[in-house]
Write a protein that binds this DNA or RNA. Structure first.
Lengths: 348, 348
DNA sequence: TCTGGCACTCTCCTATGATGAGTGCCAGTA
DNA sequence: TACTGGCACTCATCATAGGAGAGTGCCAGA
């Protein structure tokens, strides 16, 4: 490997060993330990010099004089970016993952079980956003009259998802009128994508307003509402194993723990972070304060988007202390995203 | 008040003061403090004698020699059962509760906001089970054909609740057949209670099997499935403010906290406890190990069933450390149950 | 360029003793 | 008989001090 910045190969190797070791047992690593561990045949004194350099570069830090060194966020970043060689999981590990999630029947359950699985094998908190199906195909809509001018709208998308919503309308429609509206919509839009439906709806409402009778208008309006409000659970995620975070050394402080758990409950900010990785390709890693969000200061977030039908449908990942086994966790998140994508792909 | 058991009035009074005081500041109460607080004009030495009696009765205990005394579970129980005089909330407190939950629009949101409210004002964890509507009136069913012999069943109950479920059938039914089945069911059952529908279904399936064509049978089967599986979310609850429990003195032990949180996630055992109070009338109180469920050993659970249409529909309450302000919490739970019942009552 | 040596620093653990809160018991008093 | 003051005793808590251990930085020498 060529030198990276001012860091020669020996320094890099020592950094890697130090971080490996620190991840393993969580205590600051001293020069003596490092010289023993690194198999470089160097005395602790020499190691000390190198460590001083690494500290100058901000890659490691000492909690106090005469403790060993601990990786900084910058150190982890360097480690993850250039030091870490990811060995893919061997096939029977993949198989065992595969099996653990092939039980799922419905979508909701599948998401939950993936989240459980992630938290189970990494001993961190697992998180999976609900899949967003941009390319939802409109399949069928039904309007059922209830009392008091209320109409129940049932919308079937993509042969799998069912949404219902109750609307209050201005006037009372007869069952026949509603049937007529539904028929029109189904004939016009069946099989089209959600985006197409919305566009076409808007266009027709502007262009051809006059040619539509009142019922059509109402149908349009209703369908429009469904389209608008009906970002199903795109703004939601399933979290599992938060209890794994209780008692993590880095989070021993009660107040920090409470903040973190409250963030999980509020969901908003966590979603914001997950959203960012939605746009990225492959595994994304936020280390400590990189997330830019306080309660996650001492946490790392490893995410990967998952795809359905070639489109990014959601994000999954794990949240845990900065001191986590990146080497193991990253491939797991990666594979899990692919497996979930495959499991969600319609009948493939 | 008459003597209760071997406990004279003075001893009772002292016990009450001790518990009040302990609830307030959480530190063991000594004889000196008690003599000052109780306004009985007794010397600490006398108090000590009484305290020794109370300890013999198992109502209070000393964490160690020469610490003050702390109430035991038995002590709390006695306190709650016979010492506590509940003053109902004054009307503007009730009003403010009323307002906080009148925002809710849909049922799901209402439940969540009640749970939030409970945890917010008590600083404990609030919990509300989803309402169960035993007397659901069958309003409308619709069968929509999907691909692959799958049929989407949409069931509207009670003008409010909508359920859908996808079934796979043995043979492919035409839209017309499905329509016919739905029509039959709607005509036959509309307006009837869930229980009636089930009974009648079973009867007709036995008696008159022959007279029904295959489609009817299938419809029955489907409806039966819906009836069976369709205990909507009766087995679910909404929890809020678990983070309030982080850092509670009694739960300082990380492992106990983790256990408790895991219990919340598993839901099953918590539901079992809530279920018990479903059958009880009015506010129920489980103190410490009385719940019979380990993770709740150091917790108290205060619950009250809430009614819709004169029927018990669900349970709400709070969960917190045994050392909680019963005097304040009990009326709050009580009133909240009534307010929620009122809010859920159809158009009243 | 590496190494051994040395003085120094800091944490962690243990022992120690003082303090204060609280107790139980007992003898005395109204 | 019911209360009280007094006394010896027990613990938790806190601050203090000292030693052991781990680790450091720096320097002089190979």
């Amino acid at each position: 490997m060529a030198n990276v910045g001012p860091l020669n190969e020996r320094a890099q190797h020592l950094l890697r060993v130090l971080i490996d070791r620190y991840i393993e047992d969580g205590k600051p690593i001293g020069s003596r330990t490092l010289s023993r561990e690194a198999r470089l045949d160097l005395s602790p004194a020499t190691i000390r010099n190198v460590m001083a350099d690494l500290e100058d570069l901000g890659l490691i830090a000492a909690p106090h004089t005469s403790a060993g060194r601990v990786p900084t966020v910058k150190g982890y970043r360097f480690f993850v970016d250039t030091l870490l060689s990811l060995k893919p999981l061997d096939s029977h590990e993949v198989d065992s993952l595969q099996q653990r999630l092939s039980v799922g029947n419905n979508e909701q359950g599948l998401i939950a079980s993936v989240s459980d699985m992630l938290s189970g094998i990494t001993h961190l908190a697992g998180v999976v956003t609900m899949p967003r199906r941009e390319a939802n195909a409109w399949q069928h809509v039904e309007f059922l009259p209830l009392s008091d001018n209320r109409v129940l709208t049932v919308l079937v998308l993509n042969d799998q998802q069912v949404q219902n919503k109750i609307f209050t309308t201005d006037k009372a429609y007869s069952p026949a009128e509603l049937q007529q509206a539904a028929n029109y919509l189904n004939q016009t839009f069946s099989g089209k994508s959600f985006q197409q439906v919305r566009d076409q709806l808007l266009r027709e409402m502007q262009d051809a307003k006059i040619r539509m009778d009142q019922m059509m208008l109402a149908a349009m309006e209703m369908a429009g509402k469904v389209c608008d409000e009906d970002k199903p659970y795109e703004e939601d995620y399933v979290l599992a194993g938060q209890t794994n975070l209780i008692g993590m050394a880095a989070l021993s402080d009660m107040d920090r723990l409470r903040e973190l758990f409250e963030a999980f409950n509020a969901k908003r900010d966590i979603l914001h972070i997950l959203d960012q990785s939605q746009r990225a390709e492959g595994v994304q890693i936020f280390i400590g304060e990189e997330s830019g969000y306080r309660p996650l200061d001492e946490c790392s977030v490893i995410t990967s988007p998952y795809q359905v039908d070639g489109q990014v449908a959601g994000v999954l990942g794990v949240i845990g202390p900065t001191r986590m086994a990146y080497e193991r966790v990253i491939p797991i998140v990666d594979i899990t995203a692919k497996l979930l994508g495959a499991a969600l792909n319609p009948r493939s």
